[in-house]
């Protein structure tokens, strides 16, 4: 029982919470503005992980400094996919449920292709590197440098995105599009530009999270899926399209996960994750924290 109150678990939960919040934020932006369900979201994380890995092992440049380049690459992938797959779907005037269902299938195709292209290029063997793994002690809590960096960077990204959404004209137009698509268009928001930025931002943020994950964990072409599921749990708990609800839910899920695993066993982790997922969908599909207004 004593260990539950220690700072060690709290720190672990905060690090994981920051990651979950960041990953889910990307998924939420893409869903909120375009109603696209990106089940390839975790694969962007995987791409970010590989980017950081190659950046560090080939050039010796800190993966942290490589993050902006990695984010730019996946943002580019997002923009390319937007034009190749989704632009016509979005402007076709199809009903939203159909766009959602199609996007799920299309992103599934994207996911399969991405995983196997990476496996073909870099083999399916898991890889890892050591970076910032010195242990620091603050009070009783031992933490590695890379986890501290992960927490700080994810918090910095979250705060800057919240500031952009709340304080800039452009951020507010993203929020407007999430809240009401037609009204946003009526008041003169350039919907296409907002959608493009959202997909670029959402994809970029996911790969930043992937770069952070790769500092502490092994990477492999098929590592993305659990992250996809976790981010779906988070955005459904937070209310689909509700950006701030999603951030809170990210930390909530991380705390539940870390403390419940500490109480039971590591084998329970997946049961717990999927159990929460199924329960939330069946009991409160509108989210624990209420729903963003639907258009």
């Amino acid at each position: 029982m004593e260990s539950l109150l220690s700072g060690q678990l709290l720190f672990a939960a905060l690090v994981l919470g920051g990651l979950y919040a960041l990953i889910a934020l990307g998924l939420n932006l893409v869903y909120g503005t375009m109603r696209l369900l990106n089940i390839a979201h975790g694969d962007l994380l995987m791409i970010g992980g590989y980017g950081a890995f190659w950046c560090f092992t080939l050039t010796g440049i800190s993966p942290l400094l490589g993050l902006p380049i990695i984010a730019a690459i996946t943002a580019g992938i997002g923009i390319a996919l937007y034009f190749l797959l989704f632009r016509n779907q979005l402007s076709s005037g199809k009903p939203i449920p159909q766009i959602e269902a199609n996007s799920l299938l299309l992103f599934f195709g994207v996911s399969v292709v991405t995983q196997n292209v990476i496996a073909l290029a870099f083999s399916a063997t898991p890889r890892a590197y050591r970076y910032l793994d010195d242990v620091y002690h603050i009070g009783q809590v031992a933490m590695t440098g890379n986890r501290i960096a992960t927490l700080l960077i994810s918090l910095a990204c979250l705060i800057s995105i919240i500031l952009i959404l709340n304080r800039t004209m452009f951020g507010m137009s993203i929020k407007a599009l999430i809240q009401n698509r037609d009204a946003a268009r009526v008041v003169g928001i350039n919907v296409e530009r907002v959608q493009l930025t959202s997909i670029a931002l959402g994809f970029g943020v996911a790969s930043v999270a992937g770069g952070l994950v790769s500092m502490a964990e092994q990477i492999s072409p098929f590592m993305g899926f659990p992250f996809t599921i976790a981010s779906f749990v988070v955005i459904i708990m937070g209310g689909l399209g509700n950006v701030f609800g999603g951030i809170l839910a990210g930390f909530l899920l991380a705390f539940i996960e870390i403390y419940a695993v500490a109480l039971t066993s590591a084998n329970m982790r997946s049961i717990l994750l999927y159990g929460i997922f199924v329960a939330v969908l069946i009991l409160r599909p509108q989210g624990l924290l209420g729903k963003a207004r639907q258009s």
């Binding site: 269902a101 049961i271 199924v278 599909p285």
Partner: peptide, 28 residues
């Protein structure tokens, strides 16, 4: 009954999650 009340894309990801849940419970 509970699963079919959920519609559209939620149903799709719910069926997936349910299958994984059963898998992990049996694995455990």
């Amino acid at each position: 009954i509970p699963v079919l009340r959920v519609r559209g894309p939620y149903f799709v990801i719910l069926t997936f999650g349910l299958a994984e849940l059963v898998k992990f419970i049996l694995l455990y």
